[in-house]
């Protein structure tokens, strides 16, 4: 079963893209997309008509995942090319699609949800705010680490993800091309194993946070909880041993994740975490965490024991 979408150049796409193809994107990218591809634009939340020869899905993880599900369920003959506008979700390189429903996330999994190819247009990220970039980095780290630590990861997969993690440790903040590539590899990797508590928390809280209080997206939630959960997982000698056996420096990873941590947002989310902790425990992602998450584990997070 294919586990990744091939990386294409824009030159290759331009020779392969049929005349009836369209670009499905967000309004803010419409002009640039039309200039780049010269194709008719379909603006989100509208969807393309079915049975086109090809569609380029250009945008964030939400749009790309929606396009993946649309293609499989409504337009199976359409070739799908994914161009992410920001790294982090890795949706362009994953057989997993996450759709936000009313109060819940619906998860689709299978090779049929992989795009036919992906492209990197790094310049799209240049206008993103520093906060959005940090959130995306936190999302990428969560995929790489949780995929590596997953109890169902094979040694071969752990080697791959250890290489991604070493790459992330070396990556400069301004290396957008590098972040896009490592984010794609991290997401493809974790799709072959699983994620863990960071994603369990993010998946449960995101649809339940009201816009009247703190409204945070998936990437921001992953960034916020990455360090506390890493510290929680480090309580297991097995986790520490795994990291060391694959040549990963625990303190270096800890430093990076601590750098992403925002204590103010974290504390603002504590009532939500406590209120929805039972749902977090039951989330499929939580149940494949590298360390068992128990009802009593809530106090570790509410009492900030990760900071001791």
């Amino acid at each position: 079963m294919p586990t990744e979408a091939p990386l294409w150049s824009f030159e290759k796409l331009s020779t392969a893209f049929p005349s009836d193809g369209r670009v499905w994107t967000l309004a803010r990218f419409a002009d640039r997309a039309h200039e780049k591809f010269g194709k008719e634009i379909v603006t989100w939340p509208d969807a393309p008509p079915p049975n086109l020869s090809a569609v380029i899905a250009l945008g964030g993880g939400t749009l790309i995942d929606r396009a993946k599900v649309w293609r499989h369920h409504e337009s199976a003959a359409t070739k799908l090319f994914a161009v992410p506008s920001m790294w982090g979700s890795g949706a362009e390189n994953s057989p997993v699609a996450v759709i936000n429903g009313a109060g819940e996330k619906e998860i689709f999994l299978g090779a049929e949800y992989l795009p036919d190819a992906r492209l990197i247009w790094a310049e799209l990220a240049q206008g993103a705010s520093e906060l959005r970039r940090r959130n995306a980095c936190g999302d990428t780290w969560s995929h790489a680490l949780e995929g590596f630590l997953s109890p169902i990861a094979s040694d071969a997969l752990r080697e791959q993800l250890a290489s991604v993690i070493r790459g992330l440790l070396r990556l400069g903040a301004a290396d957008d091309q590098g972040w896009f590539e490592l984010s794609a590899r991290a997401c493809a990797g974790q799709a072959q194993s699983s994620v863990g508590l960071v994603h369990g928390i993010a998946h449960v809280l995101e649809p339940r946070l009201g816009t009247g209080r703190t409204a945070l997206g998936h990437a921001a939630l992953c960034r916020t909880f990455a360090w506390p959960v890493f510290r929680y997982d480090l309580g297991s000698p097995k986790v520490v041993g795994l990291l060391k056996n694959f040549g990963l420096e625990v303190s270096a990873i800890d430093d990076v994740l601590r750098g992403f941590f925002d204590r103010e947002i974290y504390r603002e989310l504590q009532p939500d975490l406590a209120e929805h902790w039972k749902k977090v425990l039951r989330d499929p992602c939580t149940r494949t965490n590298s360390v068992v998450v128990r009802p009593a584990s809530l106090s570790y997070f509410t009492e900030e024991k990760f900071d001791e």
Partner: peptide, 9 residues
């Protein structure tokens, strides 16, 4: 999966 992880822990 969770059982196996927990038993080892």
């Amino acid at each position: 999966v969770s059982m196996a992880v927990g038993l080892e822990e």
